[in-house]
């Protein structure tokens, strides 16, 4: 009998291969986090000894942690993969940032609009994303092969039935499909798989002394000089790490002593809050993720 991790791995590889076989121009959304690291590792396995037959796409917001960008570039160089970095020119022109524009507009311009532009610009008809069903209630109902209208909209009421291992990736003109190979993985599965397979992850996941300020009960890392500090506000060195990674002003750190993978897993199992809690964007209002997804967010 296969263990649950072996079954999950085999299913993900199956999904990756099926997409490549059925779609003309696939791309993998690479967001540099732990889920992306696992998804990339699975892609390396799925097509071995060939290289993954698609490029990686990072939709950058210019507000990611510096260590994420360094990790991204090192990973791509180490594995000699194709990487496309897309930055929404409108965001640059309008200097969109979470401090003056708020998290909702920031996310919409940089991530949702940026992603739609990048997919349209390159004519990708399939995009892999590392989302998991255990992350959030609206994700729990999304298909593994999730169709998008030519406007990139998701309609939860018009989802195709998905039976057995038979994925229907056929599209009409202009439509595209978002494919989620990690749909059935949980946060614990991800960490365990990283541990078992020695998959490199961004060092921000491990605890270290870092300069942070506390805002509304959330610890924000002062990652560069663009972070506006209030009168008399002084970054403090605290021993912190991150459970999820995103834009540094929107991602809360947790105080922690976990410096190894087993310690991270231990902390996660004993913790009393879920991983998305550190994400400011999920709290923008009731059903906010569902709405964002309908508008084309990953």
């Amino acid at each position: 009998m296969l263990t649950h991790l072996q079954r999950l791995e085999a299913e993900s590889i199956d999904i990756l291969r099926e997409t490549v076989a059925e779609c003309e121009h696939p791309v993998m959304l690479y967001s540099i986090g732990k889920d992306s690291s696992v998804m990339l590792h699975l892609a390396l396995k799925a097509f071995y000894p060939s290289k993954p037959p698609f490029p990686l796409l990072h939709v950058d917001t210019t507000w990611k942690f510096r260590e994420m960008i360094a990790f991204r570039d090192a990973t791509v160089a180490r594995l000699s993969l194709d990487l496309i970095v897309y930055v929404n020119p409108e965001g640059i022109r309008e200097r969109i940032n979470p401090f003056t524009h708020g998290s909702a507009l920031h996310t919409d311009i940089w991530k949702t609009q940026g992603l739609k532009q990048a997919l349209g610009h390159h004519g990708f008809d399939a995009a892999f994303g590392g989302a998991r069903r255990d992350e959030e209630t609206s994700r729990a109902k999304e298909r593994i092969f999730s169709m998008r209208s030519p406007q990139h909209r998701w309609d939860p009421k018009l989802q195709r039935p998905e039976l057995w291992r038979l994925y229907n990736a056929r599209k009409n003109k202009g439509e595209s499909v978002r494919v989620f190979p990690l749909s059935n993985w949980t946060e614990l599965d991800i960490w365990q798989y990283i541990d078992l397979n020695d998959i490199p992850v961004v060092p921000l996941y491990f605890a270290r002394e870092r300069p942070v300020v506390e805002r509304d009960g959330t610890l924000i890392l002062v990652d560069d000089e663009r972070m506006p500090l209030a009168e008399g506000e002084e970054p403090q060195m605290r021993r912190v790490r991150f459970r999820t990674l995103g834009c540094y002003p929107l991602t809360g750190a947790i105080e922690s002593d976990a410096t190894t993978l087993p310690e991270i897993i231990r902390e996660m199992l004993l913790s009393r809050s879920s991983e998305r809690q550190g994400r400011v964007i999920d709290r923008d209002g009731a059903a906010s993720m569902e709405r964002k997804k309908q508008e084309g967010y990953f």
């Binding site: 296969l2 263990t3 649950h4 999950l8 614990l188 541990d195 078992l196 231990r266 199992l269």
Partner: peptide, 11 residues
């Protein structure tokens, strides 16, 4: 020990 046990679980 927990991780070892957990990784051998079925589904």
């Amino acid at each position: 020990q927990y991780l070892e046990a957990h990784s051998g679980k079925g589904l």
